[in-house]
Design a protein around this nucleic acid. Structure first.
Lengths: 199, 199, 199, 199
DNA sequence: TATGAATGAGTTTTCATTCAT
DNA sequence: GATGAATGAAAACTCATTCAT
């Protein structure tokens, strides 16, 4: 009965996704340690037992989540890279996309924040998050340096500027985590940190 | 003969302070939920039992810590208010002081961050932290408005600008929590968000 | 396939009952404070964790137990009330039934005793027990007064006589708690306190 | 300086007595396990440390208390024995004295009750209390037998009658522990259990 | 004699994980 | 695939007891 197996496959995928989505929300609110398996299961309209069918445990759920986000960000950078635009425009596009929060999944930023900041998180997740941060910095530094060449971006150590940018993006993530709207012009304003005043 | 009342008073004060200081460090690293009473006790060279002699529990330690920080920030604002300086200079002074982390207590920023972002934190602590944020925004908005009058600060909704500023300060806190140095000119650069290019 | 809802229902009922039954025995021997959760769990062939699956804690177990006893006594009084018998015979029947200890549950008397006497018992339990005592006294007073009308019961303040009766029943509970047999004629003898010598 | 030592001796005696008196009150309310050393110390206007100067620990305080009560009851029986009165009158006198509660120390009854009933009490204390009960029963049985000889006391197994009497006395202790007044005629009424109706 | 800071063993409570159905 | 009863290791908390002063 291949038909049934296909159907099962679909059900499996949907369940996995449903669990991850719910987990992101709960993790975002309660933190990694503060979230109980039961909380995730309840949020996903599932049972504890079922969750263990799909994941080895809380750790794996969290790691998977971070890995998905990491992949999303990596993809975002690649997209930006392919953009036919100036370095400054690339940066703006990227930040806007990040702040929009990977389409529907705005609640995921705080999850990354935790992975970055807390010691009480699986090593794998923290490594992924830190690596993502480091790679972002490297790429941004290159874009910034390029922008400085063309005069689009202000002078200064590109590394420091990249770090400052990431710092501000993290700040936006915190603001979002507090359910405060950053305001439509926030990204616009932030760009002032980099862009040379167009005379 | 029992110890004199004074001697006991001194011992108590010192212990309490020692516990709070250690707690701030551990909370900063491991988060509120991720921190075990025993971790705090060990960091303070104390025993679990003694900690309960001085505090009702983890919650009270955390609340006390947040309250202390809140008092510190409040005091910082009052100091800045008394400064004989322009609004912009006041803001710069305040942010520098905040980023320095109230003198020796640099590890405390991440603790506030958690109180702001996480649901798994005592209500009292979160309320204190949110109130502190709201009050900061109000005062900063006033300063910004004043700076706009004198032409020192750029145009724009003062409320939005204040929120943006707080957002960036939070970002600096995240960066600090990751043990990354923000760079000496970070505050300088941030001021570019507000100050009208002198020219 | 998961267990059917019905099967789970049965399991839950049985477990709860098993825990309560064991708890009554342990509480009777060791007192409320002297009983550790682990003692109850062990007596019920369960684990600590499972006990918390069914009850919020020691307090809830105790309160539930007292509530059950209270319901049992209330039912006993109703039964006695429906008895086609003289007031004195009603009293005798009631006391006999109480001393027998509500069928199989002889160990429960000492549990109530504690709720009546000790401050270190949940408020809810003490209130239930005190209320039960007060209500018993009220009903007994009425029966006694009726018995006095018909000449079956000796003269005297019905309230005082009712209290005396309850006092003696409590004494029987103490004796039972010491694992001493009160003797088959104890109730018979006690009735001499009330009944007018048949000539 | 013998004077000082004498004074010290007096102070010591007073302290010990003060502690025991307070302990009796607290034990009566909260039970042996439910009472913390600190509770006793506070009730005695003392400190934990000082309590350990006078007693080896909680156990010793409790045992001492029971031993004092046991001695008091033993003395009561001896006094009653020396009374120039009929067996029935002796019993009545004894019960009245017990119910009055050894002069000022009414709160001690519940303490004995606990020693009799609870497993969570030092062995020594329980043995003392049980022994006291057994000896009481023996003596009462003799008095009852003597009263039966003289026709003062009703027929029946003297052992059973003695036990019934003790049962009722325990009941009075419970009633007292609930701070209910037994009524002035309670003892009088109880005697009806034993005394042959004076025709 | 007197105190209360300090300790750590013992309890309560929570929760990730297992497993019979 | 799905459930939730059951377990036990780990964390929170209490309190008898010690001891420096």
């Amino acid at each position: 009965m291949p038909r049934t197996e296909d159907a099962n496959q679909v059900i499996r995928e949907e369940r996995r996704h449903q669990i991850l989505k719910s987990a992101a929300q709960v993790f975002a609110r309660q933190g990694y340690v503060g979230t109980r398996i039961e909380d995730i299961a309840a949020a996903a309209d599932s049972s504890k037992g079922l969750l263990y069918h799909y994941f080895a445990g809380k750790e794996e759920v969290f790691n998977t989540l971070i890995a998905m986000i990491e992949a999303g960000v990596r993809h975002l950078f690649e997209e930006a890279q392919r953009l036919d635009a100036s370095p400054g425009e690339r940066l703006r596009w990227l930040i806007e996309r990040e702040v929009l929060g990977f389409e529907q999944q705005a609640q995921m930023f705080p999850v990354v924040l935790q992975a970055l900041v807390s010691d009480s998180v699986p090593d794998e997740a923290r490594d992924l998050a830190l690596g993502m941060g480091r790679r972002s910095q490297v790429v941004m530094r290159e874009w910034i340096a390029a922008g400085q060449q063309s005069g689009e971006i202000i002078e200064g150590d590109p590394d420091q500027l990249a770090l400052l940018l990431i710092t501000c993006i993290n700040g936006l993530a915190v603001t979002a985590a507090m359910s405060l709207p950053s305001g439509p012009s926030a990204v616009e304003s932030l760009m002032r940190l980099l862009l040379r005043p167009s005379q």
